[in-house]
Nucleic acid binder design. Structure first.
Length: 269
DNA sequence: TAAATCCTGTCA
DNA sequence: TGACAGGATTTA
């Protein structure tokens, strides 16, 4: 569900709300949440008593940082939600803090996963490429990473090992803004395309972060607030509606197994 | 590189 | 009832 702007919104709010708090107790309501985690047999007890000194983000992972390099990383996948307040019917994991508040990981579809690292970070976090927001500041470096990949540009943008943070909504939005067709091969993009793609990535992710992300289904921030990028989106879930540049009807197709929205006039293969 | 898989809910 | 959903890995 959440992509970079939603996860960034989430960690900023969490950090403001709970940095410095100590974990009084922890509850795992669905064992498979941590099935691929190091130290899974020690959980959730290994979390109790630790002080959260910071909450930040690696790609789409929400990371709670503790002393001595310990980290709890949560990935919300499609329907995960991290809130501060009372558990709902989809609560899979909770942290009760020393001030009595609860951090609740809810996940309707049970795709979400958690990882606890006692010291150094390992997989899957170490397999991520550079963060999209940072990489887009350097169009040449961005272009170089994309050019090294076979496959369609949309699929390459979604590959977290290439660049971390972009998901299905923002891939479509970025490609529309850059005027690049989603099925174009990443390897044939020109220097001009790379510049456009980098600029589009900065613009789209920046605007989405300022708007607190996109809420069209499940996403809410930790304080249960919705993101408003939805109202300014150009293509995602706008099939049949007019392109904001040329009024051509937005098309929907499947690319790499994902619903893909684009303008057939503005975006050429 | 496509399809199946992990899950559950919602909407047409 | 079937299609589809802000993800990502595994299998063919």
């Amino acid at each position: 569900m959440p992509e970079l702007p939603e996860v960034e919104t989430t960690v900023r709010a969490l950090n403001r709300a709970i940095a410095g708090r100590r974990i009084r107790s922890a509850w795992v309501g669905w064992r498979r949440l941590f099935e691929r985690s190091p130290e899974r047999r020690a959980l959730p007890a290994a979390l109790v008593g630790r002080r959260i000194y910071r909450v930040d983000r690696t790609g789409k992972f929400v990371c709670f940082r503790f002393a001595s390099g310990a980290t709890l990383a949560l990935h919300q996948k499609m329907s995960g939600r991290i809130t501060i307040g009372a558990p709902d019917q989809y609560a899979r994991f909770t942290l009760t803090l020393d001030d009595g508040r609860q951090v609740v990981f809810s996940d309707k579809r049970k795709f979400g996963r958690g990882y606890f690292y006692r010291r150094a970070i390992g997989e899957p976090l170490t397999g991520l490429g550079p963060d999209a927001a940072a990489l887009a500041a350097d169009p040449a470096a961005f272009g170089q990473r994309l050019a090294a990949r076979r496959g369609r540009i949309k699929s390459v943008l979604l590959n977290q090992a290439v660049v971390a943070g972009i998901g299905n909504i923002y891939a479509d939005e970025i490609l529309w803004r850059a005027k690049i067709h989603p099925v174009r091969l990443a390897s044939v993009l020109t220097t001009v395309d790379h510049r456009r793609l980098a600029a589009a990535t900065r613009a789209v992710l920046g605007q989405a972060m300022r708007r607190g992300g996109t809420s069209f289904r499940d996403y809410l921030d930790p304080n249960l607030r919705r993101g408003t990028y939805w109202t300014v989106r150009a293509v995602y879930q706008r099939a049949g509606e007019p392109c904001r540049r040329c009024r051509t009807s937005i098309q929907k197709a499947t690319v790499g197994g994902r619903g893909t929205h684009y303008c057939p006039t503005c975006q050429r293969v």
